[in-house]
Design a binder for these strands. Structure first.
Length: 488
RNA sequence: GGUUCCUUGGCCGAGUGGCUAGGCACCGGUCUGCAAAACCGUCUACGGCGGUUCGAAUCCGCCAGGAACCUCCA
């Protein structure tokens, strides 16, 4: 397969050419949401980033299996040792079954992702549905000697692992420094070392989400699900593992150690991490309480929002920055994206109606290659968008009759716009193809035709009445050189 | 404190040694019965101070400011 897709591998801190282990198949695992609350803008970033990667890999001709997990057990509330399961806690607060809470937020998550036009992953495994696999995984690590049991819980022996392998390979951490800086916190812990992490936790009596295991009635450690489920669905070695940058340590670092300890090999070839969305320069996050949920964006129902922002505006906003840069949220930035997107989509609609000429006075030949090149350079969507805006200029000039385009070039332009705007960037271009919608559009066109007649007869009263009444109903009427355009 | 990273024009945001990304706003123009919208054009920035180089936003050093991770987090 001929292409030069390069992606940034966190493991080596540089861009590398993407070469699948088993072309044309590609295995990709991305850390999904913990379903104990509504998804906020921060959750949209990895979903969209890896949606783009998913789409682009498919465009390149790969057969992609995209696994995105649902974390519904195992994340502890406070400290590693004394906390309680987040989902269980929320359940007790709301007097619901834990799985009821999971289902509720999962449904809402799916709805938000649909709105953002994020494709469904190939497999969306639940941690709670893979307890057996996780127990087996713990056993493998115990068998290999890199874990120990302590009072019904099982911990990963980081120090021992570090002697044979290197713990900290992904995050650049040094275990000796970590032992020094955290020594004070050691105390009555069941762990040998503060850097050790839980593979299995014995449940305290009030802990409702619990399963039988060889060691105790309890629940799996927080990092285990990804190792177990990634291996199950993608194999012991697979191509890409993604997630937010904040997961590099400890989550992904621990995953690497676990998998390597259990399987005696490196599991993931390319580690990819999206950067954070910030508010006033600070990370938007659940624990900081400075988050705005996606539904709040869609409805505008949050004090920090000056208006509602459509899902496509959110998507476009995120795509206008490179995924490894932080993006600062602000109403100004979002409004700028909204306007830019509207202009782009109007240009797209205009492109469909352009009439070709004998020859072109505009040059569209390099567009496809330039967009491909930008995508191949670590998914540089902002550059793709800038190329599309450049092409938009040509579309508008042809539309205004200032330039001409040949039928061949027009087809190429349409093809490139369809490919990049719809298939790769995943932007929805106004649709509504239902019969009812069609009739309604024709009715508006009819009204505006009548207005056009009135204008020709200099019947300003009728002309203005139609325009004013439609405007009052929420329509935007634009007079053009030889007719009109409108939208809601 | 340790590790990693960032600082670009009014705002957002690309860019890794030479070839002024792009968007939004502003301003100018075109179109128009009026208006709105649309369209076209303009706006040459790179935290500070040194250094390397024929040449630096881009490489190196120092300083200033900010962020992420080190505890759950996308």
């Amino acid at each position: 397969m001929e292409h030069k897709l390069h992606i940034y591998n966190t493991l080596h801190r540089k861009k590398e050419q993407f070469v699948p282990l088993h072309s044309p198949n590609v295995g990709m695992y991305v850390c999904g949401p913990t379903v104990y609350g509504d998804a906020h803008l921060g959750h949209a970033r990895p979903a969209i980033t890896f949606d783009i990667l998913f789409r682009y890999l498919m465009h390149l001709g790969y057969k992609v299996r995209y696994v995105r997990n649902i974390t519904d057990v195992g994340h502890l509330e406070n400290d590693a040792d004394e906390g309680e399961d987040k989902v269980a806690k929320k359940a007790r607060l709301e007097q619901l079954e834990p799985m009821e809470v999971v289902q509720y937020y999962l449904n809402r998550y799916h709805r938000a992702m649909d709105e953002l036009n994020v494709l469904s992953p190939s497999i969306e495994p639940h941690a709670s549905g893979h307890i057996i696999e996780q127990i087996e995984f713990v056993q493998k690590i115990l068998d290999s000697g890199y874990a120990y049991e302590s009072e019904g819980s099982v911990y990963f022996d980081v120090e021992k692992y570090n002697k044979d392998h290197r713990y900290g390979i992904l995050s650049g951490r040094n275990i000796d420094d970590m032992l020094e800086t955290t020594r004070e916190l050691d105390g009555q812990s069941e762990k040998r070392r503060s850097v050790d992490f839980a593979l299995w936790k014995k449940a305290s009596p009030e802990h409702i989400m619990r399963w039988n295991s060889p060691w105790s009635v309890g629940f799996p450690g927080w990092h285990l699900e990804c190792s177990a489920m990634g291996t199950k669905y993608l194999g012991e070695e697979f191509d890409i593992h993604g997630g937010g940058m904040d997961l590099i340590f400890p989550h992904h670092e621990c995953e690497i150690a676990q998998s390597c300890a259990a399987l005696k090999k490196d599991t993931v070839k390319y580690w990819m991490h999206n950067n954070m969305i910030t508010v006033n320069g600070q990370k938007m996050g659940k624990s900081l309480g400075n988050f705005i949920t996606l539904d709040e964006f869609f409805t505008g129902s949050h004090p920090m929002l000056a208006q509602a922002y459509s899902p496509m505006t959110i998507r476009f906003f995120i795509l206008q920055a490179h995924y490894r840069s932080t993006v600062d949220f602000s109403n100004e930035a979002l409004q700028a994206s909204q306007k830019g997107l509207e202009r782009m989509l109007e240009g797209y609609a205009r492109l469909q109606k352009l009439t070709p000429s004998d020859k072109s006075t505009v040059d569209v030949s390099g567009l496809r290659a330039k967009c491909e090149e930008a995508m191949c350079d670590d998914l540089n969507t902002p550059i793709v968008i800038s190329h599309l805006f450049e092409a938009l200029k040509a579309i508008n000039l042809v539309h205004d009759g200032k330039e001409t385009i040949s039928a061949e070039d027009l087809n190429e332009l349409k093809s490139v716009f369809d490919l990049f705007i719809k298939d790769i960037l995943g932007l929805k271009t106004v649709n509504d193809n239902s019969a009812g919608a069609d009739a309604y559009k024709k009715a508006i066109d009819l009204l505006l035709d009548i207005r056009l007649e009135a204008k020709k007869n200099k019947d300003w009263a009728t002309s203005d009445k139609i325009r004013n009444e439609l405007t009052a109903l929420g329509f935007e009427i634009k007079d053009t050189k030889d007719g009109f355009e409108w939208k809601l």
